[in-house]
């Protein structure tokens, strides 16, 4: 696909080009939004906001990197803003230093599908979920996460370690655990 022409056509606000861009990136970007939220409806809301931002700021895309990565970045920041603004999420974004979960250092063999893994990640408390997504999937450093979330780098590290340990324990128990009951009831 010729992204350069597609972007230019979108900047010229040609509806067909806009639809083409949306169709091309909607599914992977909803995958991103899905990981940061607790419901598909919320993920679609984030996707909607994100694509509006994409179309409004497409003229700022400099063709220096991949278009997909640029859109993905917008989706992540939109998701973070959504979590901060939405009352159902932002009260759980308050981080504390309580040690709720054991820390696991080993690397388990992941035998589950991507969708199942995403569902497990979404079962994490929202703070863990967010930091885990940002570090393990998006590749943000803890310093960057600290700046974006307004927390200390150390808090980000500890939260990530706990999220990781919890997720690993769930993966290990994947066959035995009923995910629908929710494992993190202790929070």
């Amino acid at each position: 696909m010729d992204y350069q022409k597609l972007v230019k056509d979108c900047i010229r606000e040609i509806p067909a080009a806009q639809r083409q861009l949306y169709d091309h990136f909607a599914e992977p970007m909803l995958g991103v939004c899905y990981r940061y939220t607790k419901s598909v409806d919320d993920a679609e809301d984030v996707l909607q906001d994100g694509f509006v931002k994409v179309f409004r700021n497409l003229h700022q895309f400099k063709y220096e990197g991949e278009l997909g990565a640029w859109i993905r970045r917008i989706m992540v920041t939109t998701a973070l803003n959504f979590l901060k603004k939405n009352s159902r999420y932002n009260r759980d974004l308050a981080f504390d230093n309580e040690s709720l979960h054991p820390v696991a250092d080993d690397d388990p063999v992941i035998k589950i599908t991507g969708k199942e893994l995403a569902d497990l990640i979404r079962q994490l408390p929202i703070g863990y979920q967010t930091i885990f997504n940002m570090h393990a999937v998006e590749g943000f450093s803890h310093v960057e996460i600290g700046k974006l979330m307004g927390i200390n780098e150390g808090t980000s590290r500890s939260q990530y370690a706990r999220a990781r340990a919890l997720l690993i324990s769930w993966i290990k128990k994947n066959d035995e655990v009923n995910l629908k009951t929710g494992l993190y009831a202790g929070k």
């Binding site: 909607a26 679609e44 996707l47 893994l117 997504n133 570090h135 999937v137 990781r164």
Partner: peptide, 30 residues
């Protein structure tokens, strides 16, 4: 380490199909 790499590769390929109303809302707003 390996765990993060596996998670990252699995999640990069994650695709979820959005409903049609998302595009309608996006189109309406732009």
């Amino acid at each position: 380490n390996e765990f993060e790499k596996k998670v990252s590769s699995e999640m990069q390929d994650l695709r979820v199909k959005p409903s049609e109303k998302v595009w309608l809302h996006v189109e309406e707003r732009i």
